[in-house]
Design a protein around this nucleic acid. Structure first.
Lengths: 337, 337
DNA sequence: AGCAGAATTGAAATCGATTTCAATCGCCGT
DNA sequence: ACGGCGATTGAAATCGATTTCAATTCTGCT
């Protein structure tokens, strides 16, 4: 059913009907009510594509999805969905063809220039992320989940990775550990750099130095956790504690510890960052896992909210949120043997 | 840059430019080449909303996302993305406000009627799923991932859940197990019903009867795996083997077994269905987990392909794919003690 | 050279809404 | 009764592409 017909059935002009449905003040309360109820009865719904063409609004926020099937992705998007369900805004996942930086930039450009989205969310940036410069030059609203050091203004929301790892490392140092390993996230990402920074700072405060041989970068997975933990623990001068990048990594670390006949929370302490997944909880691990916790889902929800504000015209340079991270001590951390 | 200006800069009419870019045959090769290269140089890109309005194509496939942040979701969508990156088609995630069936139906209706998508993918249907009837009556192409028993025709892709569980159960029975528990998926979903069916059939073939007290339905998570496995194993007449709904569930089952001082693959056998997650592999678990395996990502890729075919006009009633499931035996299954 | 027919190109209508600007209606005070 | 004002309503332009149909330019052939 088109506006034309619908209006005719009501004996009104398209103009009035459109205004009635969009809540313009100049239409009488009586007709507004009638139009609204008839729209439901007759099932009239504006063609979104016509609306978009006319108004220039796409009604969607773009999110790029890498081919790697990020473990965090679903939680984040689900959090976004929670905020957006009342905002009449969709989430547009764009498959990314990127094999290198340039491809990725082009993918963002295509997405934005084709006007499919009103705003874009950029994930896991690097310190000098070319995507930020590009989006800036395109003038499209965008929000960075994570941080970058680029001089181009950008709205961002990030968790305090540096402090998170700093605190977890301090905790281990306070317990008496002196050889602590860290299984960090992907090399080059700002969050990995911040975490490494926190790791180093915690050592420095106490006049110690973090051992570069005990620091690795890798993706978050059970497998990488296992592999690196094994490699660390089999060394001559093995660490007595491990800081893991995610609960998934910690899972592999636990496995590695067990595989060597050792016990987590006794022979080796483990602490990890927990993004809070509904299907794998740190509390339930055995022994329960000490963590720094910050909900990825909550971040998604808040990012959606902030992005809506950006779209509504709020200035990007006033949107900077740094979320503190909870330190939750459980059984996996204890004094060294 | 609009078509108008761009065409003027080239000294051509909008008509010709449009045709050149859309690959119509009646434009000369010379001009097509020129238009194409100039489009890149000057950065002209058709406004997607205008294109959609005119052509009626939305250029997107809709996927509903529940609030639960499904663990499978990211993998499936990522698989879809893999196929769609060359198809100029996006994935539109619609946050779903559903609190009951009716809400959900309405959400689908809104999505389709607003013409934001060319097709819809329905997940995890129930045997008589009202969404299928509704989408059918709307006449929009849709593909069901999973199956339904509704009489309304629908294209579907499903894995052979019945046979998967049947084979894993047979395997356990062949090993000599007689009290086997099953931790199934969500109650009421077709896949759970099929799995239960497979479980029952395996027993029947051997003149045995599956014990209803050893069958539960729940969501796939580490926590539920733990809880149910504990509850089973603490009974007087405890099962000697457990069929788990997912690797995540199996994780909890392993934990439960260990928590009772028992060993997986000795005191208790465990087998699970594995959707193949990049961050948690059955092979790496200790002991390595026997599974029935089927890649969720591959399903996403294929579903995207089939949906594109539906959009292109292929009849829904000729699209029915039942994927066989691999049985992979590892260390977690052994004869009962 | 001249012409039919094929190969290209363009003008204008169209998709379905929103919004500007103009028109009408009703009510009030004098 | 009438001018004026605010409250409603409508006609028509517009968003930026695609596509029909008509016009023009090229060919090849006699």
């Amino acid at each position: 059913m088109k506006l034309r017909e619908f209006a005719k059935q009501l004996g009104l002009s398209p103009t009035t009907v459109s205004r009635a449905l969009s809540g313009y003040p100049e239409v009488s309360e009586a007709t507004r009510a009638r139009v609204a109820s008839e729209a439901i009865r007759l099932g009239y719904r504006p063609d979104i594509n016509a609306v978009r063409l006319k108004t220039g609004r796409a009604g969607a926020i773009g999110v790029m999805m890498g081919r790697s099937g990020e473990i965090h992705f679903a939680e984040f998007v689900s959090g976004m969905a929670q905020r957006l369900e009342t905002a009449d805004t969709d989430i547009l996942i764009t498959p990314i063809t990127a094999h290198n930086d340039d491809d990725e930039i082009q993918a963002y450009r295509r997405l934005v220039e084709s006007r499919r989205v009103d705003a874009v969310i950029v994930h896991s940036p690097r310190p000098r992320d070319p995507r930020i410069e590009m989006l800036n030059s395109l003038g499209v609203p965008f929000l960075v989940h994570g941080r970058s050091e680029t001089e181009h203004v950008h709205a961002w929301l990030d968790i305090d990775n540096e402090n998170a790892v700093r605190r977890s490392t301090e905790h281990l140092l306070d317990l008496g550990h002196r050889r602590i390993a860290m299984i960090n996230g992907l090399r080059g990402k700002t969050y990995s750099i911040h975490r490494e920074q926190g790791f180093r700072l915690a050592h420095q405060e106490r006049g110690l130095t973090a051992d570069p041989n005990l620091m690795v970068c890798d993706k978050f997975s059970d497998e990488s956790g296992f592999r690196h933990a094994r490699s660390f623990l089999e060394r001559a001068n093995a660490p007595t504690a491990i800081v893991a990048g995610s609960t998934m990594t910690a899972l592999g670390v636990y496995r590695a510890v067990r595989s060597l006949g050792m016990t987590v929370g006794q022979d080796v302490s483990v602490i990890a960052h927990d993004d809070v997944f509904p299907y794998l909880t740190a509390e339930n691990m055995v022994p329960s896992l000490s963590t720094t916790r910050s909900s990825m889902r909550a971040a998604g929800t808040r990012c959606a909210e902030l992005t809506l504000q950006l779209i509504a015209g709020r200035a990007a340079d006033e949107i900077h949120e740094l979320w503190p991270v909870e330190l939750i001590l459980r059984e996996s951390t204890a004094p060294p043997p």
